[in-house]
Amino acid sequence: MNIRFLFFASIREAAKTRELELDIPGGNVNDALSHLETRIPELRRHLDRVQIAVNEEYSDRNRSLREGDTVALIPPVSGGKS
């Protein structure tokens, strides 16, 4: 199934792209991230610190994915400073 990944901020810079579509065999978010990290090894060291949003809703990594889902890798937001 086709999954569209979105990258932001430091993750976008590590991935060197803003988005990527991957055809993966199915499964949950964790499975999809494994495929992603095989494709873009530079993301490996970032994956533990990102939150995941599926179709614009924060989601846990056990969530099953469906054809056409959008998985966003959300690094910590700038929060709480000024």
């Binding site: 901020a9 430091s10 610190r49 966003a72 937001v77 700038s78 709480g80 400073k81």
Partner: peptide, 23 residues
């Protein structure tokens, strides 16, 4: 907004260093 909105700020310093804030 600062707690939950997906927005990220990068500072570009005068010496050329760039860093994402909050990460």
């Amino acid at each position: 907004i600062k707690r939950s909105a997906p927005l990220w700020k990068k500072e570009i310093l005068d010496d050329g260093e760039e860093r994402w804030i909050g990460e």
